[in-house]
Design a protein around this nucleic acid. Structure first.
Lengths: 195, 195
DNA sequence: TGTCTCCCAACGAACGTTCGTTTGTTACCA
DNA sequence: TGGTAACAAACGAACGTTCGTTGGGAGACA
C-alpha cells in the first residue's frame, strides 16, 4: 500500500470525471478508486473544484502544446493542418481523461476558470482558422470555404474521435489521423486533386 | 398561475438537463424553473430518472422520424444524404433540449433504458452507413471510403452544430445544412465534381 | 548503529447542507 | 362534489468538507 501523490489524485479524478462527469463523481467514489477515504483526498488538494481545474488545465496544456508544435514545424498550410490533426488525435488518445474532461466539463467550472478555458479553446481554434485561411490564400483550399466554419467542422470530426476509437481495434491512431485528414480535404466524393 | 401538465414538466426538465446535465439538476431547481415546488413534480411524474427517460426518448423519436422521412422521400443516395443532413440539423435546432440531452446524457440512464437508446442510436447511424454505401456502389462516393467511418465523420460534424449555432446569427439553418453537405461531399479542396 | 523527533498521508467521525422522495393537506376547477 | 395540482413538512441517504488523531518512514543526533 504505497502512498499517493497529488498527481495520482488528479489522474484518478480525471478518470472519474471523464467517465461519470463532475457532478456524477463524489469525493468518496474518487477515494474508493484510489484506495483511500474520500476525506483523505483533502491532504493533497483543497477541494473538488480544485481537482476539476487541475484536470482541465492539464488537458488545455496538451492541446496548446500540440498546436504550437504544428505551427513551428509545419512547412506549408496543408502540412501544418496535417500536423494539427495528427497532434489532436494523439492528445485525445494519449490523454483521454484530461482531454474528455477538458472538452465536456467546461460548464462545471467556476466562472473565472471557465472564462480562462474558453479563451484557451478559442485561441486553439484560431490556429485552425488561420491555417485554413492561409491554405485558401495559397489557392489550395477552395475560396468559398469560410475559414471559421471549416475549422469548426474539422474540430468536430476530431473531437468525436475519442468517443468511438477503440485502442484494441484494427486501425492505428496514425491511420485515423490520415483518414480524417483525407476526409476533411477531399470529402466523400474525393475527385483527384494535385495537392 | 396556470396549472402545469406532464409535458410542461418534461419540457422544463429537458431544458435543465441540456444546460446543467442530469446530475447537475435537482428537483428543486427544476421546480423553481416551473414556478412550483420540487416535491410538486411528483404529482406528474414518478421520479427524476423517469423524466430523463421521457426527454431522451423524445429526442430519439425526433431523429428516428427524420431518418425515416429521408429514406422515404430520397430519390438517390446523395439526395437521401442531403435530406438526412438537413433533417438532422432541423431536429437539432427545433428541439435543442431533447436533442442535446439525447446526445450527452445517455450515460446517466439506467442500464435497461441505456441499452435501448444505444440501439436506437446505432440504427440511426446505420441509415447513414447504408446511404453512403449505396453512394459508393453508385460510383458517386469514392470507393476507398469506409462507409462506417464516413457516417461517423458526417454525424460528428452534425452533432456539433448545436454547440456553435446561434439562432440570431446571419446564417440560416438551411444554409448550415447545405454548407455541411458541401463540406462532407467535397471537403476543403473541393475540386469540381459532376454530381 | 540505535533511538528520537518530526512530518504528513491517511483515517474515522462528525459537521451542516442538499439530495430524491414520501406523506398528508389544501384549494381550485370541472 | 370529486379529482387532482400544488403545497408544506419531513424522511433517510448522500453530499462536500472539517478536524483531531494515528502510524510509519526519513533525517538528525548520539
Amino acid at each position: 500500500m504505497t502512498r499517493l501523490t497529488r498527481d495520482d489524485i488528479v489522474a484518478g479524478a480525471g478518470r472519474r470525471f471523464a467517465r461519470y462527469g463532475y457532478h456524477g463523481t463524489s469525493m468518496r467514489d474518487l477515494g474508493e478508486d484510489l484506495g483511500i477515504l474520500g476525506s483523505s483526498i483533502y491532504s493533497h488538494v483543497g477541494g473538488k473544484q480544485e481537482l476539476l481545474v487541475a484536470v482541465v488545465e492539464r488537458g488545455a496544456a496538451f492541446f496548446e502544446e500540440s498546436s504550437r508544435d504544428a505551427l513551428n514545424t509545419g512547412t506549408d498550410p496543408i502540412d501544418t493542418l496535417a500536423r494539427l490533426i495528427a497532434g489532436h488525435v494523439d492528445v485525445l488518445l494519449d490523454h483521454r481523461s484530461e482531454a474528455r474532461t477538458y472538452l465536456t466539463e467546461v460548464s462545471s467550472l467556476d466562472e473565472d476558470e471557465r472564462r480562462k478555458i474558453i479563451a484557451a479553446r478559442d485561441s486553439y481554434e484560431d490556429v485552425f482558422v488561420g491555417t485554413i485561411r492561409s491554405a485558401i490564400d495559397a489557392g489550395i483550399v477552395r475560396d468559398d470555404v469560410d475559414p471559421r466554419l471549416g475549422a469548426i467542422y474539422v474540430l468536430s470530426v476530431l473531437n468525436a474521435v475519442e468517443r468511438w476509437y477503440r485502442e484494441d481495434g484494427r486501425v492505428s491512431r496514425s491511420e485515423v489521423a490520415s483518414d480524417i485528414h483525407e476526409f476533411v480535404c477531399r470529402g466523400l466524393y474525393g475527385n483527384d486533386t494535385e495537392a
